[in-house]
Every structure is written in C-alpha cells, then in structure tokens.
Design a binder for these strands. Structure first.
Ligand code: ZN
Ligand code: ZN
Ligand code: ZN
Ligand code: ZN
Lengths: 159, 159
DNA sequence: CGTGAATTGTTATATTATTACATAGCGTCC
DNA sequence: GGACGCTATGTAATAATATAACAATTCACG
C-alpha cells in the first residue's frame, strides 16, 4: 500500500490512521456477517478512503487501471454495490459519486454536508433532522424507506 | 393540445386544471421577470406537468419527437435549464429526472417525497425540516447554499 | 429595416451505468 | 480427490444521461 499525501482532507487529522480504521471496521463488519471483503473490494474501499471527498466511479476505474492493470466498469460498479450493500460506502446522488461511510458499524441513512469549494463531504446523522423528516412524512401519510439528504455549500475552512 | 387521461396522478383532482394553473403561473412569473417562455419551453413544461411523476430528459425528448418532429438532447436540456433557472421545475437528483414545481411563485429548495411504487412526487416546504438542517449546519460551521432533500418510500395510497 | 443578443438546430462526444455471457475460485458432499 | 454448485471476476457490448462546439435562425429594440 502506497502513501497518501496528496489527497488528505482539509481537517487536520491522522489520515493514514483514519483509513486504517475504516478498513479494519470493514473487515470486522464483513467477518461478522460472513461477507467476503475480497482483495478487489478492499482495494476499492481503500481508494475511496484516500480522501474525504466523494470519488466518481470512473476515477476509481482509472486508479485501478494504473495499479492493477485492466479494469472494466462492471468491476468497479460491482465492488461499489457490495460496499454499499454492507453500509461501508454511501452514494452521493447529487454528485454521482461515492464516499466512505463515517460510521460503518451499523446501516443507516445520514446527512451529507458537501463543500462545493474543496469537495470535502462531511457525514452526520442528526436525530433532529431525522425527526423533522419523520413528522413531515407522517402528516402526508407517507412511509419513508430511504432518506437522501445532501446539503451543498461551503465548509468552515472555505468560507 | 391533447387530453391527458393516462398520466393523471393518484390523488383525485382536476388535473387539466392543475396543468393549466401551472402554465398560467409560468407565464406570469416569466412576464414579471422579462423572461421568454417560448413555445418550446412552454411545451416542455406542459409535458413535465402531464403527470405528478418525475419525468426523464429522454422521455421528454421522445415525446417531443412524436409531437413536433426532430428533437435533440441539447434542445431538451436547454429548456430544462431555463425552467429550473426560473424555479418552474425541480430536478430530482436521486432519479435523474424532473418534476414541475408546486409553488413556482418564488424560488426555493424543497423536500420531495417520492413514492417508489407509483412514482408520484410530492413537494413540500416544511420549515421544521429547514430549521433542523440549518441548526445542523450551524453546529458544523457549514454555510448551506443548496438543499437536496429527497425521501423515498410509499405514498398513502400505495401502502 | 438593421443590428446585436437570445434562442434553437445540428453534430459529435463525454460521462455514467448496465446487460449478458464467459471464466475462474472456492467450499462441500460423496 | 473429484464433481458439483455457488460466488466472484473478466470481458464485450451497449444503454442511459449529459455537454461541447459551432451554425443558423429569430426576435426585441432602436
Ligand atoms: Zn481522514
Ligand atoms: Zn454513513
Ligand atoms: Zn395535478
Ligand atoms: Zn418547488
């Protein structure tokens, strides 16, 4: 595994450690469920975690091609499908892109704060927002199954 | 203009009237701003309003082709761009599709409740949800510029 | 009318994602 | 160990979504 200097996030933290933790959690989650975190899937997850930005499927594809030779779209999309199914990665619909889940220990929807200046995606799960949505849904007689909440703007360091 | 029976929404209402109102509002909004609601743009808006479902750009394209002859993607995407710029249409990112704005009198983000069974999209603008998001953002020091809030599930009649 | 700006037409291409089928790996039963 | 069945991966083709670049037309305004 190579070093990861160029793509580190804006927030100051030990990102190598941050990635290692994410991969360890992924191993644990998959082990617990009898799911196979294969070399390929693990590699894709690692690429996603190289930054706290959302990464596009074809960027993953290009990086894979540079590292392990030929890679085709289905390879990437299948890995992403697996990682999303196990809650290790979220899809950011407003960007057609993917980001590592900040709390992969349990499946969840979350809210994403996306800085349009630096690209950093910050995931939180705010119960107040969740409750507000639930009450709105209730008034409409609507049964919510999946929440997609993505807020675009400027993060603290980019204002 | 043809009749609109097949695509009427689940909720019982006078949909012909509903469409007419939407077009009238659009005329008014554009007049007020000196924007030109050309025949093409008006036609696209009307196609979008034929149902309360989100419609895909290429569905619009197909319908235009059937009605006025050749139509190319840029034609549709440009009309959509105009309609969105003037708040007459919203894009539903989680569907790559477009829906008529339920309250085009003023520009806004809103929340969309999307029934995955019947496809109906219900737009509301719930201040409670907006406030919850604002407070979440404030705690992160994040400045929100655009809110994408799309809730998938089942509407009342599809449960 | 003449002019410039906005709109639309047209061709090509970029970007994102899936289908369909072939091959390879891997655990289990006998 | 070998046959079987399941999961994962490889590969080719194509579908679905969106934009770029430039030409032709239309339209408001003077
Ligand atoms: Zn990190
Ligand atoms: Zn998450
Ligand atoms: Zn209606
Ligand atoms: Zn609206």
């Amino acid at each position: 595994m190579s070093d990861l200097p160029a793509l580190a996030p804006a927030t100051k933290h030990n990102h190598a450690r941050c990635v290692r933790d994410a991969l360890d959690t992924a191993e644990a989650v998959c082990a617990r469920r009898g799911a196979r975190l294969t070399a390929l899937r693990r590699h894709v997850l690692e690429l996603i975690w190289r930054s706290h930005k959302a990464i596009k499927a074809y960027e993953i594809l290009d990086q894979l091609a540079g590292e392990i030779g030929a890679a085709r779209p289905p390879t990437v999309y299948r890995a992403l499908e697996f990682l999303m199914a196990h809650g290790l990665v979220h899809r950011v619909d407003s960007l057609n892109a993917f980001v590592g889940c900040a709390d992969a220990s349990h499946r969840h929807d979350a809210q994403f704060f996306i800085c349009d200046a630096c690209g950093t995606v910050r995931e939180i799960d705010d119960v107040t927002i969740g409750r507000a949505v639930s009450r709105g849904a209730e008034r409409l007689g609507f049964e919510v199954e999946r929440r997609m909440i993505e807020l675009h703007g400027r993060c603290g360091s980019c204002q």
